[in-house]
Design a binder for these strands. Structure first.
Lengths: 112, 112
DNA sequence: TGTGCTATATCGATATCCGAGGTAGCTCCC
DNA sequence: GGGAGCTACCTCGGATATCGATATAGCACA
């Protein structure tokens, strides 16, 4: 039973964390990243191409990812991404920041 | 020691939840809401006027809040907000959605 | 030939944030 | 009197991120 999809406003900013997380476990290409995020979140996250590809380009530009094109034997070529050392650092930072966010929301909810 | 401030992108969409949460515990005016959120989150959230006031206006327009002006004996007049019944419903929904978000991020992090 | 899945990319509309700026009341103090 | 500083509201512009739509293209299958 999939989760209901989460509103796009609340999701904002989580995409880099999610992308870095799944790439951190192995080299993946874009389409596969979207699938992994969708499946592992039980459907709660379903990043569209319009947000996924710009995010990947941005992370590559920032030095978090490196990528190379590879042919596929059944379909169009794929662009495989993997984490750099800087990317691992960013992933760790993103996780820390996410935890801080969750703690802070919880603190407000429970009266500080 | 306050938490480090959380990046604005990650914060997006949490403002209505935080605002509804603090107003849910009693009538408050705008400036006081900002203070409450800032203090209760240990400084992690520090909503600026540029995001707080539009959020309040939006929630009022959506029927989640009702407001009235009251004079202050020391300073400018204040606009006090309180939750409507619809607002309580929205607060409950926001909480549910927030929990789903946290669970989903956790699911992706821990491999689905 | 055409339907459908794979795979990448970009664009425009929408939404939200922050910082800066404006208005204004009151207090304190020189 | 007059300025600094806090309270209290509001709005505007720029940056950023999301989605849906659109485009291109390879391959499979009927």
């Amino acid at each position: 039973m999939p989760f209901r999809q989460i509103g796009s406003q609340l999701v904002k900013g989580t995409t880099p964390l999610l992308v870095l997380t799944v790439i951190g476990e192995g080299e993946l290409y874009g389409y596969e990243i979207a699938q992994a995020v969708r499946e592992r979140s039980g459907g709660a996250f379903a990043p569209s191409e319009g947000s996924l590809y710009p995010t990947l380009h941005r992370l590559e530009l920032d030095g978090a990812l490196v990528a190379d094109w590879r042919a596929s034997d059944r379909g169009p070529r794929r662009r495989y991404y993997k984490l750099t050392k800087a990317g691992r650092g960013m992933l760790a930072e993103s996780r820390t920041e996410w935890s801080a966010l969750v703690r802070a929301v919880d603190a407000v909810s429970s009266g500080g």
